[in-house]
Amino acid sequence: MTASEPLVCPRCATTHALDERFCPDCGMPLVYAGTTGVDQPVTAAHARARKVKRQYLDGELVRVAVAQHQAEAEMIQGLLLEEGVASMTRRARGFDVPDMLAAGPRDVLVPEGGAAAAREILLAADVTTGDQGRGPIDAPWRIAAGLALAILVVALVLWVGTILTT
């Protein structure tokens, strides 16, 4: 198999230029002409690439879910892949502990073209998305507001105590 061979669609058998990846007619991944694919072993990466739908690959990466740890992120990725949506994970901002590589929250990202479909898939599977509720780390203003409220309660208790004792 050489790079000079033309690419062909395995479904509709039309030839395409070498810079194409998918058939514009049917959306199948292109293969080199002259290869049937029967003699080549199917790797896990090849099997995953065949599941991805072309219409979901356009645009920048956007966050569609937040997983609590790596295993949950991989489960969400599997759900999305079964419906043809490509995804990737990254560690959530503010959580980078090299000693515990699988621990900590993960952001699940998909291309903008597949974001709506991904959110529908996750909603149907009853998976909480990252856009709902607060993220893995509290905002600083929430912490400051809680601290101010605690100080106010302590001051009120001390004030009431001094009034009752006099």
Rank of each mutant, 00 (worst) to 15 (best):
T2V: 15
E5Q: 14
L7A: 08
A13Q: 15
T15M: 01
H16K: 07
E20L: 06
E20F: 05
R21Q: 15
F22A: 06
F22R: 13
P24H: 08
D25Q: 12
C26W: 12
M28E: 15
P29F: 06
L30W: 02
V31T: 15
G34Q: 07
T35L: 12
T35D: 11
G37W: 12
D39P: 09
D39K: 15
D39C: 12
P41F: 04
H46R: 15
R48N: 10
K51C: 00
K51I: 01
K51M: 11
V52T: 00
L57A: 01
E60I: 08
Q70N: 14
E72I: 09
G78P: 00
L81Q: 06
V85G: 03
R93G: 11
G94R: 13
G94Y: 14
L101M: 09
L101T: 08
G104R: 04
D107R: 03
D107I: 07
D107S: 06
D107Y: 10
V110W: 02
V110Y: 01
A115T: 06
A117Y: 00
A117H: 05
R119S: 04
I121T: 08
L122Y: 05
T128E: 14
T128W: 10
T129I: 07
Q132E: 09
Q132W: 01
R134C: 04
I137T: 15
L149Q: 14
A150S: 15
L152Y: 06
V153S: 13
V154D: 10
L156A: 15
G161Q: 12
L164N: 13
